[in-house]
């Protein structure tokens, strides 16, 4: 009789926990949906994502088709953003360019996320590794800005894949640091101690208890990594170490437009606006996520 009652209680308890968890997520979603800058950022970014996904349907022209009858045509009804030195339609190139930029951005986010979690976990969980790993991360972070990415991409050779690798190596250290610092805090919390006490294995403790609770700072960080990757990809392309032309990467279009600043400034202008829109959207979403997940951090703004 007593045993049955216990089983009942356990089942009720489990339901209760599941319900609380659902409620937590719903509350989180609702707070996020009500956050002004998140709304604006989400809308802005969503438009860019639509452009990237449906580029083939939306772009009015083939982005790589030359048209020698309309070279360097200023913006008009036929070509809203004008044409470049080969008569290619800038609007179509920009729309396809968002696909290249977002593709690289999302690849960098995924790889940085995986590597950052792995290294951050290792450093935070395995004490003797902490010092070594973090000194290596410090060393990688000592290269100012995107200089490391530029040098790596240059050494590996210009390609989309190599740009992703170079950017991942550049942005992983900071992400690993974020993960590590949450792990260090969470590891000492009573519920992790409780899990250890009841004999949970390392894998269970890491994934179920530590990682699950380190997620929100990680997601905020990755939103900013996404934004910075789009900016950095443009820099790599602009310097000629990104995806090689004629790929319509946004940085490539700006680089081409640089030679026509005097006669056709629209070539460089519009791709920059597209980059700014995507990055602004991501920054606003990141601000929103940060405010909602951790109000204390809201004060410490300003992720470069």
């Amino acid at each position: 009789m007593a045993v049955e009652a216990n089983a009942d209680n356990a089942a009720i308890l489990r339901q209760e926990i599941a319900r609380a968890r659902r409620r937590g997520w719903m509350l989180f979603g609702r707070r996020l949906a009500r956050h002004r800058s998140f709304q604006v950022g989400f809308a802005l970014f969503f438009v860019i994502v639509l452009l990237a996904v449906f580029a083939d349907l939306i772009a009015p022209y083939d982005p790589n088709k030359n048209d020698y009858r309309s070279l360097l045509a200023p913006p008009s009804m036929a070509h809203w953003f004008g044409t470049d030195g080969f008569g290619r339609d800038i609007m179509s190139r920009v729309i396809h360019g968002t696909r290249v930029s977002l593709g690289i951005g999302i690849s960098v986010v995924v790889m940085t996320g995986i590597l950052g979690v792995f290294l951050g976990m290792l450093a935070g969980y395995v004490r003797w590794l902490d010092n070594v790993l973090m000194r290596i991360m410090d060393g990688l972070m000592a290269f100012p800005g995107v200089l490391l990415a530029i040098a790596l991409a240059a050494a590996l050779g210009p390609s989309t894949m190599n740009a992703v690798i170079a950017l991942t190596i550049t942005f992983t250290p900071r992400t690993a640091r974020v993960v590590r610092s949450s792990v260090l805090v969470i590891r000492e919390l009573p519920y992790v101690e409780a899990a250890m006490a009841v004999g949970a294995g390392h894998a269970r403790i890491i994934f179920r208890y530590i990682l699950a609770n380190a997620l929100s700072p990680l997601i905020v960080q990755l939103t900013f990594v996404f934004a910075v990757s789009i900016l950095a990809e443009a820099i790599l392309s602009f310097l000629g170490v990104g995806p090689p032309p004629p790929a319509p990467s946004l940085g490539n279009i700006i680089a081409e437009g640089r030679n026509y600043l005097q006669d056709a400034s629209w070539i460089a202008f519009f791709p920059g606006i597209a980059i700014a829109a995507a990055v602004l959207g991501l920054n606003l979403m990141g601000d929103g996520l940060r405010d909602v997940t951790d109000p204390r951090l809201a004060a410490e703004r300003g992720a470069g």
Binding site: A234, I235, I254, R258, A268, G272, A276, V279, L280, N283
Partner: peptide
């Protein structure tokens, strides 16, 4: 401030 954070600086240079 947010706009400044979001635009590529080399593009701003060209502008």
């Amino acid at each position: 401030a947010l706009f400044g954070l979001s635009i590529p600086d080399f593009w701003f240079a060209l502008i």
